[in-house]
Design a protein around this nucleic acid. Structure first.
Lengths: 230, 230
DNA sequence: TATTCGAAACGAAACGTTCCGTAACGATAA
DNA sequence: TTATCGTTACGGAACGTTTCGTTTCGAATA
């Protein structure tokens, strides 16, 4: 759980009774937690990242700052929990990798653009540049997403659509990086044609068909050698 | 000039005499400007982005805050000028696009890792998420870099190495995005082998050689049709 | 004389923490 | 079963610190 990695929460809503305690005391309020997360999202949407502060969230949630700091040690941790609450973009499974990847990018851009998730995620990336724990959590999250996105490539490999030696996570890294840069530079309205081009370049490459003798010769040799083997 | 775009500096170091002024008065001090930019870089290097503030820069530069605000309206504007002072990574020109792009990524990562430029640039990206002017300046800068990086692809097109219809800036976008994501997630020590894979996937694609009949047939047809035309 | 500079001061905002009174909860005793 | 106790959680207030962006000031420059 990502939140656990930053926040180090060992107790979940006060349900565990620590032997060092003489009595359980009051329970944590799930309503409070939800109100704080809702408020965090609302503040970010209404005032942007520049207006996002723990003070503003506390005011909006009608919660005490100590309550927020009890569960979330930093702005980044709070933003991360907000992001984790939001739906994830699914991997399309059309049987064709180009369509899968273009569909994925289109869905991701729409999701980031049409919900608060884009604002949340870009704020998180920004926080990660000044908060080491946030940076570690973001890196871990990105690693997991590369594997998940890479599943589209793995499926294509299983279908024989993609070469067996292709590293799916490097491909996913290329695609996700493209998306991140679009998010960070306000380009979520990119033309579908450009998305198709970018995906096309990754799938089919950009070298010319009869580019240089060496490339063409190498291709012919590879064809010849692979056929008798079959 | 990027700084001009944020800072709106119409006068250059007080050299222009504005008709509305009754006397030239004291000149702006170039030593001051340099001291401030040097201090900004030093503060960022020593305390990281989280310790970077106008107060800290003013203290370090032994300059007045009003002096800083006179010339740079925001942290982002100051960071941008610091970044603009730094050397740019050149485009390799080896006559082979794969070597050019891998060399470019390696140089860029080394530059970002071994100088303050990486810290400066990631801080700038972070600032751009909360400062609209910084966002506009970053987007403009990124646009210019895409064209510049795309020159490696244009040269490869001219050599016949890359197909004539390939959009060089989309390719540059893929490569730069990959670099940005590495910078933002602390991966500037990436293996050269991974860089080569990623570049290779963009150049040669990832589809299998005999992937699906349709793909192979399409390739054969394209070969046949293009030859008689020549 | 007008302009620039660095130092000092200003009011506002946010930070992360402590304090306070109230409410909630489980354990214990009657 | 009910009442009491000790502990924890809560929101509100307050705290000292830092930074923000701005104004004021006296000295230096042209």
């Amino acid at each position: 759980m990502m939140a656990g990695e930053i926040a180090g929460k060992e107790e979940e809503m006060g349900e565990i009774t620590d032997p060092g305690r003489k009595s359980a005391g009051a329970r944590r309020s799930p309503e409070s937690a939800d109100a704080i997360l809702d408020a965090a999202e609302a503040v970010l949407v209404e005032t942007g990242y520049s207006g996002f502060s723990i003070e503003a969230v506390a005011r909006r949630a009608r919660a005490g700052k100590p309550t927020i700091y009890r569960w979330w040690p930093s702005k980044a941790a709070l933003l991360l929990d907000v992001y984790q609450r939001q739906k994830r973009v699914d991997n399309p499974d059309t049987g064709n990798l180009a369509e899968d990847l273009v569909g994925f990018l289109k869905s991701l851009f729409a999701h980031w653009r049409d919900t608060s998730s884009g604002s949340v995620f870009r704020s998180l990336i920004a926080e990660a540049q000044s908060d080491e724990k946030a940076a570690a959590a973001l890196a871990e999250y990105a690693r997991g997403r590369r594997i998940h996105t890479g599943q589209m490539v793995e499926r294509a490999k299983a279908r024989g659509e993609v070469a067996a030696d292709v590293d799916a996570t490097v491909v996913a890294d290329l695609i996700a990086s493209f998306a991140w840069a679009h998010l960070l530079t306000d380009r979520l309205d990119e033309d579908e044609a450009i998305l198709r081009r970018a995906v096309g370049y990754v799938l089919k490459g950009i070298v010319a068909d009869d580019a240089g003798d060496a490339t063409a010769v190498r291709r012919r040799r590879r064809r010849i050698l692979s056929r008798p083997a079959k």
